[in-house]
Each structure stands twice: as structure tokens, then as C-alpha cells.
Design a protein around this nucleic acid. Structure first.
Lengths: 105, 105
DNA sequence: TATATTTGCAACCAAGTGGTAGCAAATTAA
DNA sequence: TTAATTTGCTACCACTTGGTTGCAAATATA
């Protein structure tokens, strides 16, 4: 399975969940209220976000609060950096970084 | 079909192709030499990158050169911005932007 | 205790994914 | 002209995806 951060944020529902949790921690039911799909469908997305460590869980009695964790999202930012450098006119170590990427496929 | 930029960069092979083309324009065969999969498989990835406008094509005789186009990748950067603001300690319009995101699912 | 609420898990399904192989069209080279 | 090269398209395949429903476990409430 290809469970990495890029896969996690590929789905618009998961991006929306991440946006909600970045504002405030929420329970699965609380999250599901913001969507038209079922609670179970949301929970499956939450599970993927958990596996990718984009969110953390905080059990509280029979409820579970999920909260956004920024660490893994920084990997996306890191991957984006050389491209951003390029379109912003910076050229620092661009080729080195991209040549490294060639061998990660 | 879910052919947006986030879907495009979810695949590691497509990210590698994007990295290669950011350094220099290449033909499908030229690209395929950098991978162990078949030319057709690479061409399918290239087709998706084309549809998402992450790359452009420049026909030259019977060859076709593909080149990286930064515009759409900026959308990823744009989506990332409020999250980046948050982990960098900035709070400018974070909630507004994220509340907008809630309704894009 | 008995009931209601919250959640996760498993089974199932239609549709999409990344991969392959074969073939035809177009351009270049012999 | 004939042969080789480059490419895109189509069909096909096993696997994954996002979604549903049903159910059991755990906790809170009457």
C-alpha cells in the first residue's frame, strides 16, 4: 500500500478534514456532520490520516478527539521547495535536489 | 475522474517525472530510460501530468519534448500556505481560509 | 441493570489505478 | 521506396479506492 503523505492529501475529503482539524480538534461524529457521506466513510479517511501521522488521536471517555499534527505536512513543503525556488527565481541547489529525486522512484 | 494536481503528485513516479522535467525537457523515450517500467506506463503518467497542466508538450518532428510548467504546482503551494503559516507561528487569516476549505468537499 | 451513544472493524461493491502487450500512424533514415 | 524509430491509442489484467451496510465493543445515561 502507498500510504504516504502525498497519497493522504490527494483526496479532497481528507484535505477538508485536515482543514477542519487545523482549526479545532473534533470527534468522528463531529467531523461527519460537515459532510454528506456516512460516519464510517469519514472514519476510513481519518484512519488513513492517522496512519500517515497527519493527525493524532486523544481518547476522552467513549469519544475520540482528533487533532491536526503539522510534522508530516512539512514533507510536502520540503518536496515543493526546489520547485518553489525555481518559480521564484532562486536556483540554490536545485539540480542537486532534483537529481536526488531521480533515484527515489 | 479525479484529475487534479493533488492526484497528479500523489504518485511517486509522476513526482520523479516532474523532477526530471524541471531540470530539462525530455521525450517519452528519454524519460522511460530513467525508470524500470515500460514506455507506455511512463506515457500514461505523462498524459495525466499533461491533463493537469503540470507539464507542456513541444512536438519536434516525430519526437515530443515535455517540459515542466510551474503554474499548477503553485496551487499546491497555495493550499499549503495556511498550514505553513500555522507551523511558522503566523496567524494571518488562517481561520477564514480554512473555513472556506470546509465547503470545497 | 437496562438502554442509548460513540466508535471501530469486517464484508461487500462499483469504479478507478498502474501496469502490460499489441497495433496503427507519423516521421526519419537507408 | 523500403525499413526503422517514435509515439499514442486500445484492450486487458490484478489490485486499490471510496463508498455502503451490519455488527460488536466500550462508555455514558436512565
Amino acid at each position: 500500500m502507498r500510504r504516504d503523505v502525498f497519497h493522504a492529501i490527494a483526496d479532497p475529503t481528507r484535505r477538508a478534514i485536515l482543514g477542519l482539524l487545523a482549526v479545532q480538534a473534533m470527534t468522528p461524529n463531529g467531523l461527519a456532520e460537515h459532510f454528506t457521506t456516512s460516519r464510517q466513510a469519514i472514519s476510513k479517511h481519518v484512519k488513513i490520516l492517522l496512519e500517515c501521522e497527519l493527525i493524532k488521536s486523544s481518547p476522552s471517555g467513549r469519544e475520540i478527539y482528533y487533532q491536526y499534527a503539522p510534522r508530516k505536512l512539512k514533507e510536502v513543503d520540503k518536496w515543493l521547495q526546489p520547485f518553489r525556488d525555481k518559480w521564484e527565481g532562486r536556483f540554490s541547489q536545485l539540480d542537486q535536489v532534483l537529481k536526488t529525486l531521480k533515484h527515489t522512484s
